[in-house]
Simulated scan of single mutants.
Amino acid sequence: MKPAGNSVTARDLVVEYPTPRGTVHALSLDRLEVDGGESVAIMGPSGCGKSTLLGLLAGLARPTTGTVTIGATVISSLQEKARIRFRRQNMGMVYQADNLLPHLSVEENVGLQLGIARRAADADGEVEALLQRLGLAALRTRLPDQLSGGQRQRVAVARAVIHRPAVILADEPTGSLDPANAERVIDTMIDSQRAIGATLVLVTHDPSIARRADRIIELERAILTAAAPDAVAVPDAV
């Protein structure tokens, strides 16, 4: 367990957006609980609120009503600057687009995260050790446009975990990859999550990727249901 705690809890979440045609209900869920160190995959059809939920867990937005708690911190009640600070120090983010900075090398992209998290005391040593462990050391001096899609995404995972976050949030991290590269990326992510004891919440459309998590949660029509990794979703069970 991380010092600040790394359980993830969401309760009574509602997200609504006013539009000229009326109110859009983007998300509604009663309860989500993820134990510290657990990995959970969230699945569901497009438009059901998966990415909206992940954004709330990350503190990128606040719900219309309800609470999101990471460890002992109710991040949904924090003001924007406090949420940014908490996210930088306690969370690692991985998206379908790797978002690597094109003018920085692999080791510079990864090392920059330590500075953002204000943990740059031994950045060179920590980056080198992580790249070695993840099999990325041979790529350390390359720029992003000199990498394959799978390599870029593995570097994005390295950047997300270098500061040993309490929680890793991943939004379709393998969505643009072929099956072989997707497998390598998810291997890198799961191995890293377990090595640092982080909690992982992963959004994916791919059942084979979802089965790598400890638990699968199906999000359908703004209602959360849960299933064991190899099972079909069971309505009204979390």
Rank of each mutant, 00 (worst) to 15 (best):
Q146H: 15
S148L: 04
R88F: 09
H163Y: 06
T73G: 12
T64K: 11
I70Y: 06
I70R: 06
S192A: 14
S77W: 05
G92H: 01
M93I: 11
T64V: 15
M93R: 13
G149D: 02
D124E: 08
V74F: 15
I162E: 09
A158T: 00
G111M: 11
A166V: 02
D178K: 05
Q132W: 05
E126S: 09
T64G: 07
G71K: 09
A82T: 05
T188C: 00
T69C: 15
R142V: 07
P144S: 12
L131N: 04
Y95P: 02
N90M: 09
D178G: 10
G150I: 00
E107R: 07
V110I: 04
A156T: 00
L112R: 12
I70K: 10
E108V: 07
A138C: 08
E108T: 13
R83A: 08
S176M: 13
L112T: 08
A160C: 10
D178M: 08
I116A: 14
M189L: 12
Q146R: 14
P102E: 12
H103I: 15
A123C: 09
Q193I: 02
A121H: 07
R83I: 02
R88I: 03
R164S: 06
T67E: 12
G175W: 03
T67K: 06
E172C: 08
E126R: 13
R152P: 01
D122Y: 13
I190R: 01
L136D: 01
L130R: 01
G115W: 13
A138N: 15
S105D: 04
L112F: 15
A72H: 07
I162T: 13
K81H: 11
L78G: 02
V74A: 14
G111N: 09
D122R: 13
F86D: 03
I168R: 05
D171L: 04
